[in-house]
Amino acid sequence: VKVAFGEGAFWRVIVPALALGVIIFSAVVIVYGLESMAPGVHDVFHDFRHVVGMPCH
């Protein structure tokens, strides 16, 4: 990692990138209402999905 990204790359690149990946995955689960990933997410964020213009029933 140090060779590829330079000194301090673990905290500067790898950790933020992994954290961002997890957060983006959570956002995808919310905006598509993926019940298989998080039961109940469809109902909880139903209005949010409509308001931000995502297709929903």
């Binding site: 690149v13 933020p16 990138a17 961002l20 957060i23 956002a27 919310i30 964020f45 209005d47 949010f48």
Partner: peptide
């Protein structure tokens, strides 16, 4: 809705700021 929009909004804000940083 206030709770859902607060949570989802915070998540989206984190994504935009995180992507800007990276």
């Amino acid at each position: 809705n206030w709770a859902a929009f607060t949570a989802a909004g915070g998540l989206f804000g984190l994504i935009v700021a995180g992507a800007m940083r990276l």
